[in-house]
Design a protein around this nucleic acid. Sequence first.
DNA 1: CCACTTTCATTAGCACACTAATGATAAGTG
DNA 2: CACTTATCATTAGTGTGCTAATGAAAGTGG
Lengths: 141, 141
Amino acid sequence: MSNSVDPYHLEDQVGYLLRLASQRHSIIFQNRISKDLTPTQFATLIRVAEKKEVSQNQLGRLAAMDIATIKGVVDRLKAKGLLQATADPGDKRRSIISLTEAGAQLMEQLYADGFGISHETLAPLKKSEQKTLLALLKKIT
Amino acid sequence: MSNSVDPYHLEDQVGYLLRLASQRHSIIFQNRISKDLTPTQFATLIRVAEKKEVSQNQLGRLAAMDIATIKGVVDRLKAKGLLQATADPGDKRRSIISLTEAGAQLMEQLYADGFGISHETLAPLKKSEQKTLLALLKKIT
DNA sequence: CCACTTTCATTAGCACACTAATGATAAGTG
DNA sequence: CACTTATCATTAGTGTGCTAATGAAAGTGG
């Protein structure tokens, strides 16, 4: 039976811990990423690289961002010359997003950075713990 | 030895999974919280309630927000009538933050909400997995 | 083919979350 | 005491991340 006098400890709550872990990850990301990119910009580039061509809507779903958020991210990546948008001839509502030459050339380095970032973020854990953490995180997604 | 041809799967990276888990948690939070509050506002109230009186700087450290972020959070909580600031007589730089009557009366409900939010967020996991996840998250904080 | 619905994208607005710069006050040291 | 350093708070700027409102284009059913 549950104890009605359990104190509430913020530091034991998932939400708070997720925020703290995200904060640390962001710092590691920032220190290790080659270009001046944020984690969401990074994820967006990865998704575009995987698909070659996507609509903005599709891209938002693939990178787990809502349409208003992905728009800003794509705009900034266009400003950096890493993404480009062209009109879809068969559907005038759509704009097709793809990597520029510069974006494409950057990808190999980004993948390498990505491995390093994940590695450092998980460094406090043993190999087996790392697998467990990833598996559990996937379950609460 | 590490395999140089490992593909990079975004969905297996800690940073990405942390973002997804945080997203789901936010939605649950929003649906369950009594007052119109965000997770950071919630954490801030909890910390003030624990300390009774804190400077804004202290509060930022306690709630894991930088000083610029906590300022905005405190401003919004003041606007909602849940926090108040008074001058520190012994140190003119400081403003002392405390709960208003309305804020104090809200706390009991917020603790209850907090338990429910954590519970629902962790619902996909068994009890033992929940403990493991929290322990592992603490290690990468 | 015309109305209804859905999809796609844009815009405005709010709330974090950080950096960097500024200014005021306090504390420590020669 | 005067100088330096540290602390506290504010402000401006950038980048997520969401909702809600708008409008254009595409699809669907009577």
